[in-house]
Design a protein around this nucleic acid. Structure first.
Lengths: 218, 218
DNA sequence: TTGCCTTAAACTGCATGCAGGTTACCGGCG
DNA sequence: CGCCGGTAACCTGCATGCAGTTTAAGGCAA
């Protein structure tokens, strides 16, 4: 692990970003215990900014940190996963509803283009990575288009939590299924149909929710 | 201001609680700049736990804290207030919907009792304080009854933000109006009518949203 | 007076030392 | 062989010193 200093002024922010990415990419496994001292050594900083960063991550729900004990990368029960998806359905469902009458045509076109590329080349070697990028762009764009900064931020938080636990290997079939659901959402947005957009998004997330809860293994 | 040491192990948690309460009670005004040094002296602790607490509050959105600058108690624009209520409508509306088929009769009865007490004695000297307690119990109970820990937590966060900016003196008339709306929600819950509960909650918050945005003064 | 510039005081972020509390290893006992 | 207890290493939370930045006060010019 290596410190990534973007344009952060505070060292503690850089540490936060670094640890966040490490967790989301699975380089820090769920349930793993990490000590401030060890992280500080790895990142070549003192314990202070590491301590700060861990407290921020604890507030995000990505780390559990009890007093006087080392931090533990959060692990989730099946109930947690279910609950996180419940929140995504509430928040992203509402975002889709609002985005239907607000999302810009050029954003829509860009999403269509990305999806078309993916569908056109299902055998590409980095297909899954590209799909993840598309998924990210797709959900972020809808969240942003809803026009509420706090809604977008909360959606981002729950998608982050989701990625933090996304260790199970999703099959290509599941992704193809998700793709079809994305397409349905895009169509509803294109038609500026708020109700249909809402329903399509809920349906999409419900499918993933069932999939994740079913394939959940500690 | 005085440090309240509940059963917190960490000093920084105690400082967090203390500052949180100070902000929510208006003892730290919005826009006020506070220095870690000054707070540390007031609370008789070193700067370290104060620093920690301020970063947590920043993550809650109650404090703005740029690098190398003193912390500023968050102030909100009219758009912020509108946005916070949008989130409350989304989250608490959904909570009411779910609570309709889940809330326990004894909880419902307790809420009814509190409301009855308030209605019976509208001239009590501490009526407004008691109303605030009731409002808190009311919304918290519904949030809890929805059965999603994360939904409850997010609702709590936005209600906290709301209280943080609730500096304008609400009139007794407005509270009476809110009381009637609460009654409507209770009736819908009592009837186990999810749709009506949802609508009543949204209606209630919409009323407050309009009220707050209208009476907003920097 | 008003505005600007200089400069000293004040403040934050980070490193580090210390005082507890926690963890883990190891030997002894059952 | 497993379990327990003691002890030593380790770790966290807090205090404090330092370096670099921000803030604010005072003086000078217009």
């Amino acid at each position: 692990m290596r410190l990534r200093v973007k344009s952060d002024i505070r060292l503690s922010d850089a540490v936060y970003e670094t640890l966040l990415e490490a967790i989301l990419r699975g380089r820090l496994a769920t349930g793993e215990v990490v000590s401030e001292v060890a992280l500080a050594q790895k990142l070549q900083v003192s314990r202070t900014p590491v301590h700060d960063a861990l407290r921020q991550l604890a507030k995000d729900g990505l780390v559990r940190q009890e007093a006087n004990r080392r931090a533990v990368i959060a692990s989730f029960t099946a109930e947690d996963i279910y609950d996180i998806f419940e929140m995504r359905k509430i928040l992203e469902g509402e975002a889709a509803r609002r985005a239907a009458t607000r999302i810009g045509p050029q954003v829509l076109a860009e999403l269509r283009r990305m999806m078309g590329d993916l569908k056109a080349d299902p055998e590409a070697p980095n297909w899954i990575t590209r799909w993840a990028d598309f998924d990210d762009a797709f959900h972020s764009a809808i969240a942003a288009a809803a026009g509420s900064p706090r809604l977008a931020q909360d959606i981002s938080r729950y998608r982050m939590l989701h990625r933090g636990i996304n260790k199970l290997s999703t099959t290509v079939e599941a992704l193809q299924q998700a793709m079809a659901e994305h397409e349905a959402i895009l169509e509803a947005l294109d038609a500026r149909n708020a109700k249909a957009s809402h329903a399509a998004m809920i349906n999409h997330l419900q499918g993933w929710q069932a999939y994740f809860v079913r394939h959940f293994r500690k």
